[in-house]
Simulated assay, not measured.
Amino acid sequence: LLRKAGAQTIDVTSDPARTATIIKIRQDIFAAGAQYGRLIVEDIAVPLGQLAIVADQAEAIAAKHGQRLLLLGHAGDGNLHPDIILESKDGALPAETQAYIDELLPFVISIGGTVSAEHGIGTIKKKWVPQQLSPAVQTLQQQIKAVFDPTGILNPGRKF
């Protein structure tokens, strides 16, 4: 099926050493990207049938806003990391990077995806929560957080 769909390379193994090598490559990708500057790690989840479309759109939006994209993910579950590499390791998020995020995330929502897959909502994405979650769900999440963090010391200023 993969070859019929155009796959050029397929790497399947039951060898534990080869498996460890493949996993090590995956683990080192973020560190490799960070060698070029600061890595803004994004994570989105999209319906599997939309994966290629979203990957193409992420690349097009990154090019439009002059962003250096590192695109990877867990394709089997629709999880993509359309990460941005910034040359400057310090400072505020550049306007062009914010523009990339502000264009990508509404597109992800429009095709039935989510603005976060596994990394959660931080300061960059919190304005997108109301478009993803109903007020009732947001209230419930705040109540759950209050149970485990009654004094508000865990990740203050993030999603809640």
Rank of each mutant, 00 (worst) to 15 (best):
L69M: 06
G73D: 02
A34C: 07
P135Y: 05
R68N: 10
I121R: 08
K4W: 11
G73C: 01
A45N: 11
Y100K: 04
F160R: 10
P135D: 06
G76E: 05
E118Q: 08
A92W: 05
L51R: 02
T123S: 14
L1D: 15
Q98G: 09
V147P: 06
T21M: 15
A75F: 15
E103S: 11
D43W: 06
R26Q: 04
D102P: 10
P135E: 07
Q142S: 15
L80S: 01
P47M: 03
P47L: 03
A45E: 10
P156F: 07
V129G: 01
Q138M: 13
I124G: 06
G33C: 10
I61D: 00
G157Y: 08
D90Q: 14
L70E: 03
I121C: 07
P16E: 11
L48C: 02
I153C: 01
S116Y: 01
I109E: 11
I10D: 01
K4P: 03
P135K: 01
I144D: 02
A20E: 11
E42C: 15
P94Q: 02
L72P: 00
I53F: 10
D149F: 04
E118M: 05
L133M: 14
A136K: 12
K125T: 03
L104P: 07
T139D: 15
L133T: 03
E96I: 09
A117M: 06
I29F: 05
Q138S: 10
P135V: 00
V129Q: 02
E118T: 06
V12R: 14
Q8D: 10
A60G: 03
V147M: 13
G6A: 04
P106V: 12
K4C: 13
L39I: 13
N155C: 12
A52F: 10
I144Y: 02
P106K: 03
F160N: 12
Q50M: 15
D28V: 08
P150Y: 03
T114L: 09
F107D: 05
T97R: 04
Q50P: 05
V115C: 14
A7R: 00
D43N: 06
L69E: 00
S14I: 13
T139M: 13
E118S: 07
L70M: 14
A52P: 00
L86W: 03
A32D: 13
K24L: 15
D83N: 14
